[in-house]
């Protein structure tokens, strides 16, 4: 229990620090939200109009007052409203976050479904034909940037072959088939890097564990090969794989930006990008706060799962 409490307390402190840093950092970046909003499309707004909007948006308040208001809001579960259209930040996150999580979940499941069996097989049959080919493919896939893969998929499957939509989003409840189609390409692009990393990690972990004494003992006892693999090899090999998976899933929260942009998937990354561009302070801080909280939660869960798998971690 102490282990869990310690981890939770550390995560909470980190979230506070991240929120404060982001709040101050975004206010220090050059750019006036009022001026940017009124300059859309290259328009040249009147200075008095900009001044009036600044006043209306509360941007003339001292920074410490804005910071205090932000902290009071956070304590009350209120992340404020967008400077662009007065839309509640929390509502935007509530709408968008599930889509980003869905994309990450789909990509992760796809990556696990491909990488774990392939990595295990490659680890058990080291230097075999499959191992060589799969390792080469993994290295190749890792080397190609996501936006290149995404753009090529759109060019080939949407623009040339007309087999898939180029991008966009339809709610699952509205059109399940279309929803899955629209999810497919971005999920594949998200999965490709993760799958390559998981494949390599699984391969080396299986390779390492399968040569341990306790595995040899299990085989010598006459256990069925499948049971040896499942209960002795994979259970022990999964711990480092899980750590990598946790870290990468956290990183994907920020890493989906390009994928969401390329496929026009309306997740959380797009409003974050737009908010940074337009210096929409409450939106930027709110989204980063939520993303960093999720990142820390994923790592917390990973730690707890690893502790469940390996009692030595609990004792440490």
């Amino acid at each position: 229990m102490d282990f869990v409490l310690r981890r939770v307390a550390t995560a909470a402190v980190l979230v506070c620090i991240v929120a404060s840093i982001v709040f101050l950092a975004i206010h220090l970046v050059p750019g006036d939200p009022a001026e940017i909003l009124l300059s859309a499309g290259g328009a040249a707004p009147d200075a008095a109009t900009v001044a009036e909007l600044r006043d209306r948006l509360g941007l003339n308040l001292p920074l410490q007052t804005q910071y205090a208001n932000f902290l009071i809001g956070v304590v009350h579960g209120d992340l404020g409203t967008s400077l662009v259209d007065d839309y509640p930040v929390l509502d935007e996150i509530t709408l968008r976050l599930p889509r980003t999580l869905e994309l990450i979940a789909a990509g992760t499941l796809l990556a696990i479904a491909v990488a774990l069996p392939a990595g295990t097989w490659a680890g058990l049959h080291r230097d075999g034909g499959f191992d060589r080919i799969a390792s080469g493919v993994a290295a190749f896939v890792l080397a190609i940037p996501v936006f290149v893969v995404g753009t090529l998929l759109v060019l080939l499957l949407a623009q040339t072959l007309h087999l898939m939509p180029a991008g966009g989003y339809v709610a699952f409840a509205k059109a399940p088939g279309q929803h899955l189609l629209l999810l497919a390409l971005p999920a594949v692009v998200i999965a490709k890097g993760l799958a390559a990393v998981l494949f390599r990690m699984t391969r080396s972990a299986v390779l390492d564990v399968s040569q341990r004494d306790y595995v040899r003992t299990a085989r010598a006892k006459g256990l069925r090969p499948f049971n040896v693999l499942l209960w002795h090899v994979l259970r022990n090999a999964l711990s480092p794989v899980l750590t990598v998976l946790g870290l990468h899933m956290g990183a994907l929260l920020g890493g989906t930006v390009l994928v969401e942009y390329v496929f026009n998937w309306p997740g959380l990354s797009t409003p974050l990008l737009r908010a940074v561009e337009s210096r929409d302070y409450p939106m930027v801080v709110g989204i980063v706060l939520v993303v960093s909280t999720l990142f820390l939660m994923i790592n917390l869960i990973t730690d707890l799962l690893r502790a469940a798998l390996d009692p030595r971690i609990r004792a440490a």
Partner: peptide, 10 residues
């Protein structure tokens, strides 16, 4: 992507 969406019929 906007152009691709037009060309693909989206």
């Amino acid at each position: 992507l906007r152009n691709a969406a037009l060309r693909s019929g989206d």
